[in-house]
Design a protein around this nucleic acid. Structure first.
Lengths: 107, 107
DNA sequence: GGCCTATTTGTAAGTTTAGCCAAATCTGCA
DNA sequence: TGCAGATTTGGCTAAACTTACAAATAGGCC
């Protein structure tokens, strides 16, 4: 694995690491449904400290997954990558089919 | 966020956590290209300890992303979810378009 | 300017993960 | 059975992540 390849995978890993947390996945889901939300709205939803949500959003932003926009005193976030939900659906479908297949193996 | 929702997001997070590492992303890429590989082949590729690769593969397996099959003394791994690569391409495309858009914002 | 609200950043403690080595399993073969 | 190669598991230390509190920053309003 050369340096360029290494850098490529590190960048990808950053994206996945950003998504690898229940709270941040909830945020992604919510943004995909409602279009955009401010930090305070997301804080109510995740039920944790504002600063924690802010950090989670910063992590998603650094990974390029969400876009922030300040309007007045509030900062609104929205999804930057549209394909996230398709991927969720695909993975979930694969997991369902996997669990459905398991009993067959017992025959 | 109720318990059922919490469980759903924890499960999703496990999948992303499994992918959130350069070595494991390289493994996924390699399996998507070559179809299947044994642990020793992947060890040569990742350039790390066999036990580390074995742990990485176990993590991918627990997340439902790869399938293992023992043939003789060797264990072969292959992808269990087909949509991973589509997702990579989509995310990468989004990141490229994002960086291309940035100069426009400077006008 | 001064105050209030919304958000971000810094810090610190607790938890989790990565990486490597050694030991244990498992398979094929003599 | 006993040996050799392939893979997995357990244990350990260093690094990274999570989380909440406190402090700092930014915008709106008087």
């Amino acid at each position: 694995m050369n340096d360029m390849t290494q850098a490529k995978y590190k960048k990808r890993a950053k994206i996945f690491k950003a998504m690898a947390h229940p709270s941040r996945l909830l945020i992604i889901d919510e943004l995909s449904i409602s279009g955009e939300r401010c930090v305070c709205e997301l804080t109510d939803m995740v039920r944790t400290d504002t600063s924690t949500v802010s950090c989670d959003l910063a992590q998603l932003r650094d990974a390029g997954l969400v876009i922030d926009e300040r309007r007045g005193s509030m900062v609104y976030y929205r999804l930057g990558v549209s394909c996230i939900l398709d991927f969720f659906e695909c993975v979930e479908a694969a997991m369902i089919s996997k669990t459905e297949c398991k009993p067959r193996l017992l025959n």
